[in-house]
Design a protein around this nucleic acid. Structure first.
Lengths: 144, 144
DNA sequence: GTTACACACGTGCATTTACACACATCAAGA
DNA sequence: TCTTGATGTGTGTAAATGCACGTGTGTAAC
């Protein structure tokens, strides 16, 4: 029963593929000390410094409370900082110089992981997969 | 910056789509008291009763230790049982009658989630997505 | 038979994920 | 002004995920 089972379940495959890909990227990123989740968040913040927690959560399509906790390790490492927002409620999250440097250092490892995916699946298949995943995120109903 | 960002990163999209789909299925399955991970494990065990922990982990392409812990909630609920294997090392995990009944009860909710995905993406796209995800799991290198 | 290696499993630790709930703050209206 | 509702955030709880490490068990080589 060892070989991965084939069920007609979409989420089953999505989760399995996400696990596999996460392991692949994590191993490539290991020398940088970052996981793929932290790398991705850092990258998002690099392009959108000063975002609020809610804004980041929406951008990455995850729960607000998840984002709050995902910020913690990066703050502890000094790679990002969460200061006052334009409101007294909101917080403004910015990438630090150390964060930008860490991101720059990790980029080659991420590129190697990307290359591994491209080599394994082929350029056209990767593009197609991206399109279908984008469609899934765009079209799948968000349960209230 | 709210709209989901588009980066040329495969794992980024896989994880985002997996999050979205997990929420969708979890909400549909909520009346059954099961999450999609527990439902999937129960389904796998239903078709492969008596599997070892390692066998289950390999079948779902996840770490052994993750599988060990994923069994705990289902055991606590009495839906599965972990007894002695053919070895004194291995354990044999079986689905209980209560587990089979719970699975049967949850099936309609799962089918509703499947239908929601099909309605949102279209039958052909779902089939294509499945094929690409299967290829990803089959071909992506497993880091040692 | 003993020794070495491989196999099966669990635990400690850290992270990622989400829901329910509570709290503070802002904006608009009575 | 006071109240009411919307907004931004954090915390408690629970689960899922993987790595490093340790333990017990089987197997084969010597």
């Amino acid at each position: 029963m060892n070989p991965p089972i084939k069920l007609p379940c979409t989420v089953y495959r999505l989760r399995m593929a996400a696990r596999r890909a996460t392991r692949l990227y994590d191993h490539h990123l290991a020398p940088s000390g970052l996981g793929i989740a932290q790398f991705g968040l850092l990258q998002t913040l690099s392009a959108n410094s000063g975002s609020t927690v809610t804004g980041l959560a929406a951008a990455l399509d995850m729960d607000r409370s998840t984002m709050t906790r995902n910020l913690v390790p990066l703050i502890r490492l000094g790679l990002i900082k969460a200061g006052d927002g334009h409101d007294r409620r909101s917080r403004s999250v910015v990438i630090t110089d150390a964060g930008a440097a860490k991101l720059k250092q990790a980029l080659p490892y991420w590129r190697a992981a990307q290359a591994a995916v491209r080599d394994a699946l082929g350029e056209a298949e990767v593009a197609h997969l991206h399109a279908l995943l984008d469609a899934a995120v765009a079209d799948l109903p968000e349960p209230t």
